[in-house]
Design a protein around this nucleic acid. Structure first.
Lengths: 210, 210
DNA sequence: TAGATTGTTAATCGATTAACAATC
DNA sequence: TAGATTGTTAATCGATTAACAATC
């Protein structure tokens, strides 16, 4: 369920402000969704609410984490030690969210051996062996578009489970590997679309929004 | 329409391979969707196909760009000159996709004045004035979570149109500002969820997938 | 008990897709 | 004309939400 991470973030914030109980109405307001939807989403986890009272924040956090598989750590590697790969490795704070970055790789000999965060950049040649030997589950592709498919092929051959791909290409995948594409250019394009709509709204009010 | 950027990318690839005509069947296969959906999506742009033949690639690219507002350039600034902000400014290649990054800002005096790509990092103090003076439409927030709301408030006060936010916080927004959140941690969490499902599928085959 | 809120049903809404006449 | 493919209708499917009995 795609909305559970949103609830999780809100609940985590609430816990920091010492809130121990929350109603579906409150949660819905914070998440900008319908209260019935919140109850339906949460009832999917089990019947953990108390009628007339609401939900216990800490318990709900635990149950969502359980459902999302965040009680386990998933070993993650980053491929590409450029700015993006470094950003993810260093300040992503992913380790605290259950995704320890256990290695970072690059093909550029000038980058191999340098330090990124707490890791030393390894040579791409060692990647497959490392994945196999350490049972790495998740690979983050922060490489140029031209290299993405090749790196993905290597990782899949080495038995990786899931890929997070930042290169703006449609990867060909084998087996049951899950791929998630994040194209930052597309994110901007969507904003551009909204900017255009804004312009049309003020000048040509004869068009229904989509 | 959220699928148009996907079609656009595929069509652009096709154009590079000298393909001038494409059918809804072919496009659907490349985009991993139903052919009827492709035709319905494209018919929204207008009736640009030819029965018995298909669609002209170049013309379709133009029409999608027009619809998405990609024939105009949208002035973009990046706030935060860390690894993430640098990655976006330098190798995002967003300028070629219609989003020229016209300035980058940081609060850290050690970063102000340094060069990122073709830009000199400016002081955050100058940001509002710059946005107003140059009519910047889009702001990219590559700052720590703690700073995100404050920077967003400043940008909105200065009249920015849309924000792309990488900080894992729910921003409070005023007026008709469009905000798009990209939480890389959430992206990983979704992969973690799939990893967990994979594990359950092999051990406990008594659970229907979601 | 009275008030509040859940869990769930049933209605509604919108998105997807099969099917096919139109037509190149 | 025969084959291919669009554009669109109508059916299907799934997601959202209003409503309310259950119950704390």
């Amino acid at each position: 369920m795609n909305r559970l991470p949103v609830y999780l973030q809100i609940l985590t914030d609430l816990e920091l402000t010492e809130t121990s109980q929350v109603s579906s109405d409150q949660l819905a307001a914070l998440a900008n969704v319908n209260a019935a939807k919140v109850r339906k989403d949460l009832s999917y986890l089990g019947t953990y609410g108390t009628r007339g009272v609401g939900y216990e924040v800490a318990f709900l956090i635990y149950q969502i984490k359980r459902e999302l598989g965040l009680l386990t750590e998933w070993k993650t590697i980053v491929v590409g030690a450029g700015n993006l790969g470094s950003a993810i490795t260093v300040n992503g704070g992913f380790a605290s969210r259950g995704f320890p970055v256990v290695a970072i790789f690059d093909v550029d000999p000038r980058k191999v051996g340098t330090i990124v965060g707490e890791l030393t950049v390894r040579n791409l040649d060692e990647m497959c062996e490392f994945v196999r030997a350490n049972g790495v589950q998740i690979g983050v592709l922060a490489v140029p578009s031209t290299a993405a498919q090749s790196v993905a092929d290597d990782l899949m051959a080495a038995g990786i489970g899931s890929l997070l791909n930042f290169a703006p290409v449609v990867l060909t995948t084998t087996k049951g590997v899950t791929v998630r594409n994040v194209d930052l250019g597309v994110e901007l394009q969507i904003l551009g679309y909204h900017e255009q709509l804004r312009g049309q709204a003020s000048s040509q009010p004869n068009r229904v929004s989509v």
